[in-house]
Design a protein around this nucleic acid. Structure first.
Lengths: 212, 212
DNA sequence: CCTACCGATCGGTAGG
DNA sequence: CCTACCGATCGGTAGG
């Protein structure tokens, strides 16, 4: 693997775990087996390293988009479940993504807003268009505010994946599912129930028994 | 106001905004008009200052508990709305609470879990008992996992209040509500809809028209 | 409550 | 890719 990628990978992990201010360039360098001045040859300042880490993370989101467009071929509840699955998997596949984005939202709300707007806008527009159509046909609750709904489901997914390690002790965890599986299942349920008309949901209930 | 309280207040604000590692003792001291060694007389190390900040924040939660017990006199949906109102107000009244707790969950998942267990356990048990009773009487959906549900609604409230500043630009904001009001209204709606049986909700719908 | 000071660590540079 | 080094800032102490 290229040294540049290895630096980015180590920086992502450390910044997700300790935060930007809690991560020294020396610590990143050591964890890939080089010294700090060598790292500064590849990324010529700490802010630029942060920027590169964030850009790589967000660019991965673009890999998800093609699968989302495929999901667009489906309709109603199936389409919704496919889209939710992609959103949750994106963070569950690598919890560092959730923790790093959450930290950036806290550290630099202005800058991260711009980045999320650029990378998230197309997705938000597709999904809210879908919600509006569902509201017209009666499948989706009229009381849902599309943009706010998407934002909150995303926030919930972010916070859930980030905090499962820290708060799983509050749960009894007596069941057979892992804490993360249990948490994501509940997130999916909350998202589905608060979006669709209950009559429509009950009508389609058999199709998603394994998701409850 | 006592100097000790003024230090705690300044430390809370700075640590919520910049994080623990991003907040120097000198910065806290300066913002209350003293020098660093004077601050270290009142809190004899930085970790102890952090601990005091967190304890004061959590102790405020105890102020909420009496009102929650009063709300217990009510039943069904009214009780739920009262409890949600207290939870959302706790964070909305001072967004630093949400941001600081979220940062602590990211920085020290183990320690914060202990603290939340001590301060949140009684509340979690009361609410989950309420949910279980509602499930028996059919008002609350059988598919709800009580502990997981509470944890996720709390996470959603935390993340929502913390991130409203950073992400409000993703919303059109064409309405008459402030971004925070709009966000909290959607959180309350998501929480209510994903908890109660739809038939029960429809039956009681008139009573909460102003919450939609 | 202060000034003066400590060793350690920070991001970054010089130079090879 | 390295060693050696820079000024600035960190948390904390001595002493009054």
């Amino acid at each position: 693997m290229e040294i540049r990628e290895r630096i980015l990978q180590a920086a992502t992990r450390l910044m997700a775990e300790k935060g930007y201010d809690g991560t020294s360039l020396a610590a990143v360098a050591t964890s890939v087996g080089i010294k700090k001045p060598s790292l500064l040859y590849h990324f010529d300042s700490k802010p630029r390293l942060r920027k590169a880490v964030l850009e790589q993370l967000l660019s991965r989101w673009n890999d998800v988009l093609p699968r989302l467009l495929m999901a667009s071929a489906q309709t109603g509840l199936n389409k919704f479940d496919a889209v939710m699955q992609e959103l949750l998997s994106f963070f569950a596949d690598d919890p560092d993504r959730a923790r790093l984005l959450l930290r950036e939202m806290l550290d630099r709300p202005g800058e991260i807003e711009q980045a999320l707007r650029a990378f998230g806008r197309p997705w938000v527009e597709v999904v809210s268009e879908y919600i509006r159509k569902g509201q017209e046909s009666g499948q989706i609750l009229k009381s849902v505010d599309p943009e706010a709904y998407i934002l909150h489901v995303s926030s919930l997914a972010l916070a859930t994946v980030s905090s499962v390690h820290g708060t799983q002790g509050l749960l009894d965890n007596g069941g057979e599912l892992s804490p993360l599986e249990r948490a994501l299942g509940e997130v999916a349920r909350i998202a589905r129930t608060s979006l669709f008309d209950a009559g429509y949901l009950a009508h389609r209930q058999k199709e998603l028994g394994d998701l409850d």
